[in-house]
Computed example of a mutant assay.
Amino acid sequence: MIVTYNSAPVIGHLLDSLPAALGGQHAHVVVVDNGSMDDTCSVVARRTDCVLIRAENRGYSAGLNRGVRALPGDGPILLLNPDVWMHPGSVQALMEGLAAPGTGVVVPRLIDERGRLAFSRRREPTLARALGLGRTGRPFLSEADLDRNGYDSAGVTDWATGAVMLLSRSCYRDLDGWDESFFLYSEETDYCLRARDLGWVTRYEPAAVATHLGGHSGQSARIHSMQIVNRVRLYRRRHGPVASAVYLLLAVAREMSWVARGRGDSMSALTALLIPGSRPPELGCSDRLIPR
Rank of each mutant, 00 (worst) to 15 (best):
M1T: 08
M1G: 01
Y5E: 03
V10F: 08
I11H: 02
L22V: 12
G23H: 11
G24T: 08
A27Q: 05
V31R: 01
V31G: 02
N34E: 08
C41I: 01
V43E: 10
V43M: 05
A45Y: 01
R47K: 09
T48M: 12
D49P: 10
C50H: 10
V51H: 13
L52M: 09
A55N: 10
E56N: 08
E56L: 12
E56Q: 14
R58S: 07
G59P: 04
G59L: 06
L64C: 13
G67R: 05
G67A: 11
A70R: 13
A70F: 10
L71Q: 07
P72Q: 13
D74L: 11
D74N: 15
G75M: 10
G75I: 09
L79P: 00
L79K: 12
L79T: 07
H87K: 12
G89M: 08
A93G: 03
M95Y: 00
E96M: 09
E96C: 06
A100N: 10
G102N: 06
G102M: 06
V105Y: 02
V106W: 00
V107S: 03
V107D: 00
P108G: 03
I111F: 03
I111T: 15
D112P: 08
D112V: 11
G115D: 11
L117Q: 14
F119C: 03
E124M: 13
T126K: 05
T126M: 06
A128F: 12
A128I: 01
L131W: 10
G132T: 11
L133H: 05
G134V: 09
R135H: 14
R135M: 12
G137Q: 07
R138N: 12
R138E: 09
L141E: 03
G150K: 07
S153V: 14
S153W: 09
A154H: 07
G155D: 08
T157E: 13
W159L: 02
A163Y: 07
V164R: 00
M165E: 06
L167Q: 02
L167V: 06
L167T: 02
S168D: 07
R173Y: 01
D174S: 14
L175R: 06
G177A: 13
S181R: 15
F183M: 04
L184D: 04
S186W: 15
E187A: 13
T189C: 15
Y191N: 02
Y191K: 03
Y191P: 01
C192G: 01
L193W: 04
L193A: 05
L193Q: 03
R194I: 08
D197C: 11
L198Q: 15
W200Q: 02
W200S: 01
T202Y: 00
P206A: 09
A207R: 15
V209F: 06
T211K: 03
L213F: 14
L213E: 13
G215M: 11
Q219T: 14
Q219I: 14
S220R: 11
A221M: 08
A221E: 13
H224P: 01
V229W: 02
V232T: 14
R236I: 05
R238P: 00
R238S: 04
H239L: 01
V242M: 11
V242D: 00
V252M: 12
R254T: 03
S257Y: 02
R261F: 05
M267L: 15
T271P: 00
P276M: 10
G277P: 04
S278C: 15
R279E: 02
P280I: 09
P281V: 14
D287T: 12
R288Y: 01
I290Q: 05
R292N: 10
